[in-house]
Design a protein around this nucleic acid. Structure first.
Lengths: 151, 151
DNA sequence: TATTGTTATACTCTATAACTATA
DNA sequence: TATAGTTATAGAGTATAACAATA
């Protein structure tokens, strides 16, 4: 009975220095953390971020949200329609530009989000990584610079 | 003619400090860079990394590769079968463990990879970001620590 | 003419489970 | 019993293009 091979050494070669490669694996790892910490919330990271951003930006238009989250407009339509069907968000056409749609949290959506906020903050502050808290701060700062996100 | 709204300010709120959120957006951004720099290679980041790792680890087993790249085994089967059909990789069953499959680059696969290596290195060294080269190095180092990847 | 959101289509990827053959 | 890979299925996400309403 030898169990699974212990030496699962995989040489990464040039990939070990590829930013995209490292970001991809890190993102998958962090999403795994997300599910571990917030498993019973019944919401995936993408949906959660959409709901959070609507909460932070009442009246935000669909297209703006889609661009910010790098989600295709067509896909955003489906997501948001599903959220409306679930009673989490409202969609209103503003008179200034009847092509667009403004998004807001419904009372129910706000309540749902409030309920998730605690576990989320906990999840975020629980540093399960091999990084020190200082390193984690540096990492976030560098990512924000990379993304041109200002505080 | 007012063009698109200039003030597309979106408040990120707590999401701006979420590692997972920052990693997700950064990863999407970096993949966009990948496509910009290597558009005519006819290969996506995931496929490219699979081919690279097979090149770096001749005889690597499918499952090991799948675990390392955090790709589901079922999906890896399809990817690798497609690559075999394209004549890029060979799949052989080793006598020591007839359940497993060893992956190697075919001559054609090696040639294809050699052909992509130049553009890839160029793409990687071309720093289009707002990060200095030193910051980029730090970012990669921190991501490697996060992933427990050693040089 | 250009933009916003919508619909439709095709494809990729994920998640899961059942299956086979081997160990 | 457990593991490696396969197959099948359902659902999520992506990419693209065409469309209506509006600007």
């Amino acid at each position: 009975m030898t169990g699974p091979t212990v030496t699962e050494e995989v040489k990464l070669g040039p990939m070990a220095d590829s930013l995209g490669f490292l970001l991809r694996l890190s993102q998958l790892e962090s999403f795994r953390d997300f599910y571990t910490g917030m498993e019973d919330l019944g919401m995936r990271p993408g949906e959660f971020s959409v709901l959070m951003l609507i909460g932070e930006n009442p009246g935000i238009r669909q297209g703006v949200l889609a661009r910010k989250l790098m989600i295709k407009r067509a896909h955003m339509t489906k997501m948001v329609q599903a959220m409306e069907a679930d009673g989490l968000v409202t969609r209103t056409v503003p008179p200034e530009d009847k092509r667009s749609i403004e998004l807001r949290l419904s009372e129910q959506g706000a309540a749902r989000l409030a309920h998730m906020r605690g576990p989320f903050e906990e999840h975020e502050s629980r540093n399960l990584s091999r990084l020190s808290d200082a390193e984690l701060d540096t990492l976030k700062r560098l990512l924000k610079t990379y993304l041109d996100v200002r505080e």
